[in-house]
Amino acid sequence: MTRADDRALIDRFLEMMMAERGAARNTLLAYRTDLNQAADALPQGLVAADGGALQGLVAQWQDLAASSAMRKMSALRHFYRFLVEERMIAHDPSEILARPCGRRPLPKILSHDDVGRLFAELDARIAADHPAMADVRLLLMLELLYGSGLRATELVSLPRNAIAPDRPFMIIRGKGGKDRLVPLSDRARLIAGRWADFVSDDALWLFPSGKSHISRIRLYQMVKQLAAAVGIDPQRISPHVLRHAFATHLLEGGADLRALQTLLGHADIATTEIYTHVDSKRLVDLVNKRHPLARHSLKRDVDEGARDA
């Protein structure tokens, strides 16, 4: 791999961060700077670097502010994870690095009302006698992002036969090449049946575009455009935010964390635990209503204490 190859892969990585994660412009600029500097500092470049080379690089950051060093390590970890997922490398060399202390950022949240407005807009569009192909496609995509919790990459690369009308689930090849079972709602399968009328029988992909499938960037743009059409700030939404909404709203509805981990395809439940912050009200209500002390009236306890005095 040459320096030019490093730069090209950095570009692809940043496109993914924008499309799948909805990364802010400043984050993308910082990651680009960090990764370009790392590529220049490593004798063999980024892609060919091993764990020892990365440890040497991190040692050079000791005099930096903790926040700057954490951002640079985050850029490296995300970049190498991307290379593994894209099968550019077989092993993540950044796994050897000590993880900096710090809290995970809280995911952006969409309310039930926000999600309802998105679907109401698309439902109205496809209720026409001859709905636009793009509207049927986008409705199905939203069903799979919010209704099944797919990642953007998983969604756009679905094969043509991924959804069967008589099967209430899909088998998804997710991160790390691991398969997982993803449930499908009756509504999603119904919309998939309508979408099938627009897709050629010999197409390789469920969402074809040219010689390949629709890109993550295009998906990102369509979701932003839909948000703007219903009065939601486009900066608040992305395909990844819809996946967050899937997890958040399931947890609010009573799903347990282990089930959520399976549905999201997280290898480590610590990744899933980020969603517990949104459930604080339900947990407080649970303690107030279900804990044994909740059955005791404060006034009654005070009265009984007064009689005993």
Rank of each mutant, 00 (worst) to 15 (best):
L190I: 09
S212R: 14
A188E: 08
I191Y: 07
S200E: 10
R187K: 14
A188T: 08
S200W: 06
A196Q: 14
I191M: 04
G193M: 13
H213G: 11
R218G: 03
I191E: 04
F207Y: 11
H213V: 03
D197I: 00
L190K: 12
F198H: 15
G193C: 03
L204S: 15
A203R: 09
R194P: 08
W205T: 13
S215E: 05
D202K: 12
W195N: 07
G210S: 02
V199L: 04
I214K: 03
P208D: 08
H213P: 13
G193K: 10
R187G: 10
R187P: 04
I214E: 05
P208I: 04
D197W: 09
R216I: 05
D202H: 14
H213W: 10
R218K: 12
G193E: 11
L206N: 06
G210Y: 12
L206M: 14
K211C: 03
L206T: 10
L206I: 08
F207R: 02
A188Q: 12
S209Y: 12
S212K: 14
S212I: 13
R187I: 15
P208H: 02
R218L: 01
R194G: 09
A196S: 12
S212N: 14
L219N: 02
D197P: 00
R189L: 09
H213D: 04
F198Q: 14
I217A: 08
S200M: 06
S209A: 14
D197S: 00
P208R: 09
D197V: 01
R189Q: 10
S209H: 15
S200G: 13
A192R: 01
S212A: 15
D197E: 12
S200Q: 06
P208E: 02
A203N: 03
D202Q: 15
R194N: 11
A188I: 06
L206Y: 06
H213I: 05
S215I: 02
W205E: 00
V199F: 05
S212Y: 12
V199S: 11
S215F: 05
I214G: 00
S212W: 10
R194E: 13
R216H: 10
I214F: 08
R216Q: 13
V199W: 04
R216W: 01
L190H: 15
A188D: 03
R216C: 12
L219E: 05
K211R: 14
P208M: 04
L190V: 03
A192F: 01
S212P: 04
S212G: 15
R189K: 13
A188H: 11
R216V: 03
S209V: 00
G193Y: 05
L206P: 06
S209T: 07
S200H: 06
G193F: 00
P208W: 03
L190Y: 13
R187C: 11
W205Y: 14
F207V: 01
K211F: 06
I217L: 07
P208C: 00
K211M: 10
S212F: 12
D197N: 05
A192W: 03
R218S: 06
R216L: 00
P208K: 05
K211W: 04
G193T: 11
K211I: 03
S209G: 07
